[in-house]
Design a protein around this nucleic acid. Structure first.
Lengths: 353, 353
DNA sequence: CAAAATGAGTAAATCGATTTTTCGCGGTTG
DNA sequence: CAACCGCGAAAAATCGATTTACTCATTTTG
C-alpha cells in the first residue's frame, strides 16, 4: 500500500545533513539563520530541506535550553466569553513569538490550580499567565515564587510584590457606573458579588461606593455578597427581596451575578428598566440583543492579553526591576436596562414598546 | 540571597540515581513501576526522589517515543460556550490519561487550521481532535491523511472515510423541532443558517424539512442561507422581512443566527412568542434568564468530548478497522420563545405570569 | 616570512529521560 | 566441576536537536 509510507518516520536533521553533504551542526546553523555558512552550502541545505519536507522538531529543539519555548496559561474556566477571548488572544500572541501555548482550566479550584502549575513547571515552561481563582495571594502564586518561575498574574488581581499584574481598572469603571446611576436619580442601589475574589470585588465595591456617596451622600447602598458559589448568592438575593427590600437599581460585580439578578427579576415579574435597573460588570454578546439590552462594563480583553504577554516576555528575556501593576481602562455601555427610578411604566402593556 | 536557590536547575534522573546509589536506568524503572527491582533499591530511590523533590521531565521522557503524550485540539473559536466547554472537557480527559492538551483556535480560517495542524505534527502529537471550520473534506483533514496522523473529527462533520467522527445528531434534533413547531400549528416557518458548514447544515435542514412535510404537507418552509459570514446573513434576513414575508416561526441552525434573529426582531419591534416564535440550535446559559426564555437544541458536549477521546485513544493504541461515525442525541428545550401562531396575546399583561 | 588571527566546518558532548545490551553472580544441572 | 540459567543492575545506545571545542585553511599582521 503506497499510502502506508506516510506513516514513516519523519526526516531528522541528520537525514538533511547527509543529503546535503554537510554535518548536522551546519544544518542547525542554517535553520537558525546563522550567517557564517558558505552560501553554496546553505543552498544545498535549503534544497535538502525542501526535498525531504524537513521541519525542526520543537520538542528536541527545546531539550537543550533551560527555558523552553512554551507558555502556560491557567484560567478559572473557558466557558465565558471573557476567558475564551483571553485564551484565544494569548495563543495568538504566543504563536507570533514562536512559542506554543498550553492552556488549562483550574475550574475555580485552588487545589487544581496548583497541580496544573506543578505540571507546567515539569514542562519547564518559559513563563505562565495565571488568572488566579481567588487573588494574587493564593497557593498558586506562592508556588511560582517558591520555584522561581516567571509569570504574570491577570484579572482577579490588584498588584503583587513578586509578579507583574495586569487587570481591568475595576475601580474607575465602577465609579463611572456610580456616576451614571446617581445621575439618573437612583438613591437605593443593591450591589451583588462574590466575596471569594477579594481583591477585585473590593476595588469594584469601593470604587462604586465612594463615588456614589460623594455625589449623593443620602444614597443607600446595600450589598449582598456570597462567599464562594453562585447558588448561595441566588438564595441570599431571594431572601433580600423577600424581606421587602426594593432598590431601584442593581449593580452586579460579575457576569454570573448578572444572570442571577435577571432570573430573580423574572421570578418576581419585574421588568428592566421600568421596575428596576440593572448594570453588570462584564459584557457578553447576547446582552445587546435581548429586550431590554443589558448595560455592562466591557473589559478590554485585547489590551489585558497584550500587555500581559509583553510583560511576560520582557521578564523571560531577563528584564529586572520591581513588578509592575497595570490597570487597563474599561468601557461602560449604558444600555436600555438602566432607566430612572419612579419613572412608573405607562401602566398598561406599554412597557414593551 | 537564600531564595535565589529556587532558580537553580531542577534535579535530573542522574541526581536521583547517584543519591540512591543506583543507576539512572534503575530509577527510570522504579518511576515506571517496573517490578523487577529489589524492594530495598526501590525504597532508596523513593527516598531520594522525596528528598530532592524529583519529578520526571515529560519533555525529555517523550523524546524517545514515536508517539508523544500530547494531544492537539483545534477548534474554530473559543468564545462560545460550546467550544469553551469542549476544550475544558477535552483537557480534563487528556489529563486523566497522563496526556497534555495543546489547544489552538483556527479562528474560522481553513488556512490557519492547516498551519496549526502542521505545527502539531511537528510536535509529533499522539493524536488530534479537530473541529473543522467547514467540514470533513477540508484541507486540514487532507493534511492529516497525507501525513498519517491519527485523529478524530467532531462537530461540523457527518462521517469520513479515514477518521472517526463524533457529532450531535442534528437530523433527529431538527426533526423534533419540526414536530414541536408543526404541533403548535405553525405552517410558515423560516430556517436560517450558514451554508459554509455544508454537512451539518444540510443534515439539520433536511431533518427539519422532511419531518415537517410529513406531518403537514401544506407547510411552507423558507430558507435563508448566507455563504460564509454572519453579517451577510443579517442583511439577507432584513431583505426577507422587508419583502413582507411573515413566517410564524424561525428556526436558526446555529447560535449566532439566533442572535441575529433576535436582534432583527428587536429592530422590527416584534416580540416572542406573541409576534413570532424562535428556536435555535445550540443552547447558552443566558437563554433561560431572558424574557422570553429562548427555546434551544442542547448539544451533549460531554458525550461528544468523551466519545471523541475514547475513539482517539483507541486508535492511538493501535485499534484497526473502518472509521466509525457517531451521532450523539441532543435535547430540545422548548422554552417560552415558542408559542402558537395567531395566538394573539391575551391583550393585557397576563402573558407575564 | 613566520606567527597570529580569522573563517568555515565538523566531531563530539549535551539536554534528560527510556530501552537495549551486557555483565556479574548465585544457583542448577549434567 | 564445568556449562548453563536467570535475575537484577549497570553500561551504553538512542531520541533529535544545539552548542562547544577543535581542526584545517586562508588571511592578516609584526
Amino acid at each position: 500500500m503506497a499510502h502506508r509510507q506516510a506513516q514513516q518516520r519523519r526526516p531528522s536533521i541528520h537525514d538533511v545533513a547527509s543529503r546535503a553533504g554537510v554535518s548536522a551542526a551546519t544544518v542547525s546553523k542554517v535553520m537558525a539563520g546563522v550567517t557564517t555558512v558558505k552560501p553554496e552550502n546553505a543552498q544545498r541545505v535549503f534544497d535538502a530541506v525542501e526535498h525531504l519536507g524537513y521541519r525542526v522538531d520543537p520538542l528536541a529543539s527545546d531539550m537543550r535550553r533551560a527555558k523552553r519555548r512554551i507558555i502556560g496559561a491557567i484560567m478559572p474556566e473557558f466557558e465565558s466569553e471573557f476567558f475564551g477571548q483571553m485564551v484565544s488572544q494569548l495563543e495568538s500572541l504566543a504563536e507570533q513569538r514562536g512559542f506554543t501555548l498550553v492552556a488549562a482550566s483550574s475550574r475555580e479550584s485552588e487545589a487544581r490550580e496548583t497541580e496544573i502549575l506543578a505540571r507546567m513547571h515539569d514542562w519547564r515552561v518559559a513563563g505562565v499567565v495565571l488568572a488566579p481563582v481567588r487573588n494574587e495571594h493564593g497557593p498558586a502564586a506562592a508556588f511560582m515564587k517558591a520555584n522561581g518561575m516567571t509569570g504574570v498574574l491577570i484579572d482577579r488581581v490588584l498588584s503583587d510584590d513578586a509578579f507583574d499584574t495586569v487587570s481591568a481598572d475595576s475601580a474607575s469603571a465602577s465609579a463611572e457606573v456610580a456616576r451614571e446611576l446617581i445621575g439618573k436619580g437612583h438613591r437605593h442601589i443593591l450591589v451583588i458579588g462574590l466575596g471569594e475574589q477579594a481583591a477585585t470585588v473590593r476595588a469594584r465595591l469601593d470604587g462604586f461606593r465612594s463615588t456614589a456617596l460623594k455625589l449623593a451622600p443620602d444614597v443607600r447602598i446595600d450589598v449582598v455578597l456570597a462567599e464562594t458559589d453562585v447558588e448561595p448568592l441566588r438564595a441570599q438575593l431571594r431572601d433580600y427581596f423577600a424581606k421587602g427590600e426594593r432598590p431601584t437599581a442593581v449593580y452586579s460585580l460579575f457576569l454570573k451575578g448578572t444572570l442571577v439578578a435577571l432570573s430573580e427579576f423574572r421570578r418576581r415579574g419585574w421588568h428592566c428598566p421600568d421596575d428596576i435597573s440593572l448594570v453588570g460588570f462584564d459584557d457578553a454578546e447576547w446582552m445587546q440583543v435581548t429586550w431590554p439590552a443589558i448595560a455592562a462594563v466591557v473589559q478590554p480583553v485585547r489590551q489585558i492579553a497584550g500587555h500581559a504577554m509583553e510583560a511576560l516576555f520582557a521578564r523571560i528575556e531577563g528584564e529586572e526591576g520591581p513588578p509592575i501593576a497595570r490597570l487597563e481602562p474599561c468601557k461602560v455601555l449604558m444600555r436600555e436596562s438602566v432607566g430612572s427610578p419612579g419613572n412608573v411604566p405607562h401602566s398598561g402593556g406599554g412597557n414593551r414598546q
